[in-house]
Design a protein around this nucleic acid. Sequence first.
DNA 1: CTGTTAGCGCTTTCAT
DNA 2: ATGAAAGCGCTAACAG
Lengths: 355, 355
Amino acid sequence: MTERAPGRQHEPAGKRRVVRLVDIASAVGVHASTVSRVLNGEVGHSLRPETVERILAEARARGYRPNALARALRHHRTGALTFVVPMVRNPIWVRLQRGALLRAAERGYVVMIMEEPMEDPKPPGAYGYLVTESRADGLLLATALRTGGPEPDEALSAVPHVYVNRRGPDQGNDVVMDEAGAVRLFLDHVAGLGHRSVLLIDGRREVDTVYRRAAATRRHCAALGLTAVIRHTDATEAGGFAAIRRLLAAGPLPTAIGVGSIEQVFGVLAALRDARVAVPGAVSLVSLDEDESLAYLDVPVTSVSMPLAELGAAAVDALIARIDGAGGSDVVIGEPMSLVSRGSVGPPPAEPGLS
Amino acid sequence: MTERAPGRQHEPAGKRRVVRLVDIASAVGVHASTVSRVLNGEVGHSLRPETVERILAEARARGYRPNALARALRHHRTGALTFVVPMVRNPIWVRLQRGALLRAAERGYVVMIMEEPMEDPKPPGAYGYLVTESRADGLLLATALRTGGPEPDEALSAVPHVYVNRRGPDQGNDVVMDEAGAVRLFLDHVAGLGHRSVLLIDGRREVDTVYRRAAATRRHCAALGLTAVIRHTDATEAGGFAAIRRLLAAGPLPTAIGVGSIEQVFGVLAALRDARVAVPGAVSLVSLDEDESLAYLDVPVTSVSMPLAELGAAAVDALIARIDGAGGSDVVIGEPMSLVSRGSVGPPPAEPGLS
DNA sequence: CTGTTAGCGCTTTCAT
DNA sequence: ATGAAAGCGCTAACAG
């Protein structure tokens, strides 16, 4: 009883080594390869039921777990994916990440996260080494910035990869959301109420989602006969605040405002509040980025809810398909998308543009 | 010119195999072990400078990257850590994760994220297999719930691990924040302004941080001669909203309110707004969870800012120390912590508890 | 100074 | 129905 903290029964002093295939093989009195076959459920090979039982029992008893490293080395498969995300605070990434993590787990993969600093963005190819070094089987690239040209990143030519929530330079590897659909939901809603002038406040135009929303806004406003003003600003509270400040100083606001990120929504709301611009009395507001907190603001904010988790899951599926050698084409996730009405949208004021 | 997409020069049709140590060895005309030595910068062994040069040049030319799998198999080190986090929306995890990711990268580790569903929490030992299978060298356990008893999780006895932002059942493996310090910052601030009654709205008491904040509130209120009311509710907007609703129905509110999570802050503010309780006129409000958006609400909310990123970094350091066999003791991160004054706190109303 | 050998833990033909 | 042997890519002990 003077022994220190005995773990189980025959615990040899010192930390017990992890149990290997050969350990259970020699315990049962068979060869390691036999154990391997049994544990991998080889159906082709007919094993004596009794042997099978003994092996299974022993493995279970000793809590055997296969060494993923050794396995991966043999199979040229790590069972890991790397998700490269921009280092921003926006909750959009949390949901995207969650959708991806869940689906990856379902499909037997683990996910490593790499965060890319926004100040010092690297080209996607900078992450290719993770696959080359056999740390992962493929790359989910959610770095936000559009790259300069359309030349495919050579460093990724032999690396399974998928661009998530942005388009990449090479065709057929994009998994994105239907940003145009989201914009249409917003515009049709306000146009239907009689608004004729629209303002979009969004992030830097180098961000691909922003670019696509802006383009869709211009296009659809033209189609509907609405005037469109588009302002790019920092995707922060301060950015949204400053944008409204500047616009107010220059003249009356458009009557319908769409905002790209929730941080900007906070800033926009604060600026409108400061300037005593009534929402939805004088201007209507729609967030293109859904979050539950929008329901609890002094002006509950209507938003467009996008399928972030589905996007993450679809990206994982697409990447695994590429790892498995199957080709694949661009994917656009459009469902489920909906307008969450919360009261920040109303008809335009009698004298349009009144602020 | 009819060939399809030639990559570089001597690209043999089909995807080029990854370059191995032996490839560059045979190219240079030396043995693989020599290459290994050179590339690992063996100082003890004196290598002929010319050989070194040739090897380095060849490796660079062919973009050689060591196979992390093979290396890990030999070294019994994967160079990966697993971070187990609860699956919640709160931005606290984003910052914690970021601090951990950054520090891990600095120290040459990659990080895998596992999200634990809040509805179906598993014991921390359920993640031990990741180390046993050699998928990671250690575990950062940020699962929020306190476990039942103080019995150390046997499944983790041989697994390097550290509990992050919560205390674990085994001693000496905790890396937590100074929640008591945060609570004191809040209480001293409001007590200094003359408040005598305090309300804490926080999450489920099974969450360790909540438990510690509640205990510290009781203790410090007693020391200061303040009355303390503590309400546990869902860590959501709806939870905060409902808590205030119920309290208002029962009578006047304490004059100083602390709130555990930002989601609850949104709910609390909404409920106070609905009930026309002036902030900070009738009650003062402090968020124990800092976020920039708090500055842009209709009532800018004062908060206590905690060192989340530092916590993540410290946890990584502590875990690596344990992986390296060094012992370690519990760590409490208290700096930098500060009160961010934003205007939701004022002196108590003349008739205390007036609502 | 550099090559040989063995082996990390597992899987997979090929034998028997 | 099971064993033997080779090898994934790399490194470390030991020769020479």
